[in-house]
């Protein structure tokens, strides 16, 4: 009996922490989906941009001694501006280019941002303090880390803000229209190119949150976001890469599955990334539109 209880207890803990990591993947996946919907390309630099933003937050906290909350908000604003600038400077010249060109452009950005972060902050692992206490609380007989609950809460707030923006504001509506129907939108006077830049800004801001949430868990270094990007890809593909809601649900599913794989399979920690690969390939083969995708993904 006691053994069974402890098994259930540990299982429940794994699920909760899986949901928390899933929330992080969900944020980055949402960022990827925002850009995918607007320009049909996966932004391979999304994770690196998030990593860079997290280093900015780190600097604001450790060098400028700002309180965490202020640094957090400031970083999101800076990330937004950074995303807009990156789009205007590096992506806009390639508007309408073939997919391969755009993939290479985002990979180039990947290299540049990664190298720049290494140049400025170096490759030594840094601890990024969590805003949440390391204690656990008991919820319904299960000990749950406050850290995990905090990550989930922050992500929920971010998602609520993003979804309300798209649902209830004029600008959000125009961005949705521009992403889905660029030509019709231009005929209605929407400056679609500008909407694209805003989309990059928004994606960068959402991504920055994922970076700041993951850094306390994995240590801060220029390569920290690469696995997260992979899992975010898996989440986006699982949810249907056109669907923002799907990407969030996909993120949670991927997070929980990874937590269970990491805990219960022998050598599980090493198998997390290959598992992400398996999820991506399996979804693309057996349900290419994902769980919530609407459109046929085949493009000729």
């Amino acid at each position: 009996m006691l053994l069974a209880a402890s098994v259930i207890q540990s299982f429940a803990q794994q699920v909760v922490s899986g949901v928390a990591s899933g929330a992080i993947y969900a944020s980055l996946a949402l960022a990827l989906v925002l850009i995918y919907r607007a320009m049909d390309v996966a932004n391979f630099a999304q994770g690196e941009m998030a990593m860079f933003a997290t280093f900015v937050a780190y600097t604001l906290i450790t060098q400028f001694h700002l309180p965490y909350l202020l640094a957090f908000v400031l970083t999101i604003l800076l990330a937004f501006a950074g995303g807009v600038i990156v789009e205007r400077a590096f992506v806009r010249p390639f508007e309408g280019a073939p997919v391969l060109t755009l993939v290479i452009v985002t990979l180039a950005l990947f290299s540049i941002v990664n190298g720049l972060a290494g140049l400025i902050w170096g490759y030594v692992f840094k601890t990024f303090d969590s805003p949440f206490p390391a204690r656990s609380v008991q919820v319904g007989g299960v000990f749950v880390g406050i850290q995990d609950l905090g990550v989930i809460a922050v992500t929920l707030v971010v998602l609520a803000v993003v979804f309300s923006f798209f649902r209830y504001t004029r600008l959000g509506l125009a961005m949705r229209a521009a992403a889905l129907y660029p030509e019709s939108s231009r005929l209605l006077g929407v400056r679609t190119s500008r909407m694209l830049a805003l989309g990059w800004g928004l994606a960068a801001a959402v991504g920055a949150v994922s970076g700041m949430m993951v850094a306390p868990i994995v240590f801060l270094d220029p390569n920290m976001m690469q696995p997260v990007l992979l899992f975010a890809f898996a989440a986006a593909v699982l949810g249907g890469i056109e669907s923002p809601v799907g990407s969030v649900i996909g993120g949670v599913i991927v997070g929980v599955l990874l937590a269970l794989v990491g805990t219960y399979l022998p050598g599980g920690q090493n198998l997390r990334i290959p598992f992400g690969l398996i999820v991506i390939v399996a979804v693309l083969l057996f349900r290419p539109a994902g769980l919530f995708g609407r459109r046929e993904m085949k493009r000729v």
Binding site: R170, L173, A174, A177, S185, L188, G189, V190
Partner: peptide, 9 residues
């Protein structure tokens, strides 16, 4: 929303 987009500008 279609109508709102019509009045976007």
């Amino acid at each position: 929303e279609n109508l709102q987009m019509g009045a976007y500008i």
